[in-house]
Simulated assay, not measured.
Amino acid sequence: MSASVQNELIQITKTLRDNGVESANTDARLLMAHVLGIEKARLTLHVHDEMTEEQAFLVNQLALDRSDRIPMSHILGYREFYGRRFTVTSAVLDPRPETETLIVEALSKPFSEVLDLGTGSGAIAVTLLAERPNATGFATDLSPGALEVAQQNAEKHDVLARLHFEESNWFSAVGGTFDLIVSNPPYIALVEMPSLAPELSYEPRIALTDEADGLTAYRKIAAGAPEHLNPNGWLMVEIGWQQGPDVAALFNDAGLQNVAVKPDLDGRDRVVVGQLG
């Protein structure tokens, strides 16, 4: 027996809410739109449509997956970031809205050559090149799986010809100098890991924590940046909201100038910037 879109939407919303998913309403609509093959904004036009048994079964299965805290991006296979859709798998960190703060800061400066350390899905590097059609980029990651996803995203957004990928442990395989170096490194301290949202257990641990105090990557990035920056070039990194003073101190110790901590839209410290004199 078939059911209407509206009835199934009510059912899966209840399933998500009963399992403690805070974004139950939004997630239910996204799942329904995904199964119907339409944009979420058009869902209202289809609430009285009848679903096939296959569609109803699938949307309920996806609601159970979400109830198990599988991230929405893994269920849908993508995440929207800075107005573009990026492929996401369990091999990469899910691009988050807060990271758009790093994009905004980067685009406020002139650059022709950008280095993205620990590129993951490629969301940062691909976005910057898409926004700057004359720029070129170099993106690194320690994970071959992540680099594969990043290359797919570069191809999808038509910047693959301008973006070089390399498997590298931070600067180990990087040569040359750049106008801009960006990174969203693993910054969660080991002691904080048990208290994280359950969704994060599905993401690569290596992209979340340094298994130490959360500052290991920043020490390496700050120390290596000066020899890889062009004169007046900028280093910009995303941080955890409590790390601003520590990371700014590392930038100052490395001899960078104009060091500043920038907030995200929620007013929390999110990005640290510094310039090579």
Rank of each mutant, 00 (worst) to 15 (best):
L128T: 08
V174I: 09
L256I: 00
T140C: 04
G255W: 09
I221Q: 03
R69Y: 07
L208Y: 06
L62E: 01
G240C: 09
L30I: 10
Q243H: 07
V237E: 01
D264H: 10
A123G: 10
E8P: 00
I206C: 05
D141V: 06
G214T: 08
T26A: 10
N134P: 01
P186S: 05
E227C: 14
P144V: 09
F111Q: 05
A24D: 00
E166Y: 02
A260T: 13
D269Q: 13
R42D: 15
L215Q: 12
L58A: 11
E148K: 15
L180H: 07
E166K: 14
S4W: 00
V47A: 03
L117T: 11
P144R: 09
L215C: 14
Q242G: 10
G244S: 03
D27C: 00
L190K: 15
S4K: 08
R17V: 03
G83V: 15
L62W: 05
R270K: 08
L31Q: 02
G20K: 01
N7L: 05
L16M: 04
E98T: 03
G122K: 06
H48R: 14
P194V: 12
Q243A: 05
E238Q: 05
E155N: 09
A248D: 02
N19A: 12
T26M: 14
T209M: 04
S23K: 07
L76M: 09
L128Y: 02
L58Q: 13
A41P: 00
A150T: 11
T209C: 06
A254V: 07
D18K: 13
V59W: 02
A3T: 09
E199S: 07
N134Y: 11
R29E: 15
L163A: 08
A207K: 05
I188V: 15
V191T: 14
K262S: 07
F251Y: 15
G214W: 05
F86E: 03
A154F: 06
I221P: 06
Y78R: 11
I181C: 03
D141I: 11
K109Y: 13
V271C: 03
V21I: 13
A197E: 14
A139H: 06
R268G: 00
V272G: 03
Y82R: 12
V35W: 00
T177Q: 14
A254H: 06
D116F: 05
L93S: 10
A197Y: 11
G120D: 05
I70Q: 04
A130Y: 06
V259P: 05
T140W: 00
Q55E: 09
A28K: 01
T89I: 14
P198V: 02
